[in-house]
Design a binder for these strands. Structure first.
Lengths: 340, 340
DNA sequence: TTGTAAGCGTTATCAC
DNA sequence: GTGATAACGCTTACAA
């Protein structure tokens, strides 16, 4: 392994000073074209490779953003991460990625680690660290779809999504409206889906009910929790036109499968709509209706806010705004075979 | 924003030298218990935060591993990444993650960037950069499920998987064996699935055929490509017991959906088995049989090799082995409702 | 347009 | 056990 080529080597070789070499990379316009050429050739000849770490130490700009996601097993988070990476890439940022598994202590360690690497900003999708703590980190923070009282954030318009989903069901003249969801905390953005459902149900005067259950991540577990719910619905609302709004496509798919397994088809009296527009909503035997979360917009908006904040910090006289920005991204109703 | 607390501050406050403060963090055993305590208190009092970048500059150990995945949209890669992160976490490594979208030029840029951050090792899942080039990077490289002639690698035992899948179909006394796959290059590890299929088909003496097509990533596209294949199978092999081995669960699910949509159930004459054990294989209306890729083992083995190589580099007299290691991870046959 | 020199915050080496 | 001091490789006033 040959030693690394540094500015000093290029300087020695060309007769310029290290400063000039630095300028060649950072302010090439301040050099004469000939000198530019000379250095360029030498850089190639010696096979120079940048050392960003040394640069960070000198000027503090790491170009690194920290990301903490809860897990990558669920498509939604992987999808989000993928858009985050591509959004940041456009600005030249790199990402140190951590999966917290929603473990509070683990996440604490990751945050410490992230700060040790001089990250310029932080994107948090995981839910376990209260925003109040994130706000104390001393760097720009933006969260996506989680509690965000003390930090900047981007969230899906869950409320509107809930309204749209439920309205679609009332328009189809469903005789009873049913909402299946996790038992969410009121501070969670996704709680808006429940609010939307309730509002439309109330104002439309249609009978409605909610099944708020704790579903796990595992298919079998979801099935186990959902089975009695399905039974209950079958018994209580037999013969009535049911509009079912399920707050997540994975669960919606399991439900749909149960219906189809029982009837060998989707009975007229079932109207089903999910949430997220995950691949499964298209890949199901009967592609089902859903409320699309615009993960692309979520990621790009988050990056937009973050970049703005990070840029502000780089100015000579940073104006650290205390005002928080909370953006809301609209959903889109995707109509497929289960609400026709 | 108050200035950063550094070793110098702690040194000034405690009366020790910076060296001793450094020792406090790196070789605490060489300090007296009292002094340890004094420094500990001061560190807390001043609210010191590590600066790993400065440390990297001084000792070269970045504790960062670079990862390049093709995309995160496909569950397989997200799953793999998730295991990679957790495997590396156990060793204290952090990850700079890039998504190449299989774009050669983009990936070239990422590699350069990665090197600029002094990464200690590289994990490549993406396929576009030839291993010959990766080998020239001058850092430990391990690839997962891709061409690996000139680098260390971990691959699924695709051949055995192909054998197992096909054998299962012959055991069920299928009268014709069908394999649906992409038109893979022979150097791609996944080509082993085709070889396995052919071998069992040949030796069993069962009639067989292959449909090698270019499927996209999009559901509609897969459907469009698969539709004529399904038609062809229906016509050519009507009334015969068909054993279909589809080399990927996403495609297998589309195929299964087409069969079920047509027959309202899975006809006796269809035996279907996929590959990967993606969630969709469980979430399909009829959970289908598949060959499980052990992504956990793939990730942990890769990390194991990488850590070994990285550790070797840290020794005073590194022994850079030229011998490459190529590990193979066994598959597991998962039997579900479509091969009974 | 170019150079000098002082950092940036650690760690390594060698004394004491 | 502890401390000077010189790296590590780059940036940035300030000077020329």
């Amino acid at each position: 392994m040959k030693k690394k080529v540094t500015f000093a080597d290029i300087a020695a070789e060309t007769g310029f000073s290290k400063t000039t070499i630095s300028r060649y990379f950072n302010h090439p316009d301040t050099l004469t074209t000939e000198n530019l050429k000379i250095i360029e050739d030498t850089v190639k000849k010696l096979g120079y490779r940048e050392n960003k770490l040394a640069r960070v130490l000198a000027n503090g700009k790491s170009e690194i953003i920290g990301v903490i996601v809860p897990t990558l097993y669920m498509h939604y988070y992987a999808d989000l991460l993928s858009h985050i990476l591509s959004a940041g890439d456009a600005y030249g940022y790199k990402f140190l990625v951590f999966c917290s598994d929603e473990n509070r202590e683990k996440e604490k360690g990751y945050l410490k680690e992230l700060l040790a690497y001089n990250i310029e900003g932080l994107l948090v999708v995981s839910h376990v660290t209260p925003s109040q703590e994130l706000a104390k980190l001393g760097i720009p923070v933006v969260t996506i779809e989680r509690e965000d009282k003390y930090v900047n954030s981007v969230n899906t318009n869950n409320y509107q999504g809930g309204i749209d989903a439920t309205t679609l069901l009332t328009e189809k003249k469903c005789e009873v409206l049913i909402h299946i969801n996790a038992d969410l905390k009121k501070c969670s953005p996704a709680y808006g889906r429940i609010r939307g459902f309730r509002e439309v149900s109330e104002t439309s005067g249609t009978p409605y009910c909610e099944y708020l259950r704790k579903f796990g991540n595992d298919y079998q577990e979801i099935r186990r929790v959902l089975e009695p719910v399905f039974q209950d619905i079958e018994e209580k609302y037999a013969g009535r036109k049911k509009g079912i709004f399920i707050s997540n496509d994975t669960v919606a798919n399991v439900f749909l499968n149960m219906v189809i397994t029982k009837y060998k088809m989707l009975p007229e009296e079932y109207y089903i709509i999910g949430f997220d527009d995950s691949p499964i909503s298209r890949e199901a035997v009967i592609p089902f209706s859903t409320i699309r979360q615009d993960t692309t917009a979520l990621a790009y908006s988050a990056m937009d806010i973050l970049v703005k904040l990070m840029n502000e910090r780089k100015k000579r006289v940073p104006v650290i705004t205390k005002t928080l920005e909370h953006r809301v991204i609209d959903t889109k109703t995707i109509i497929r075979g289960t609400t026709k």
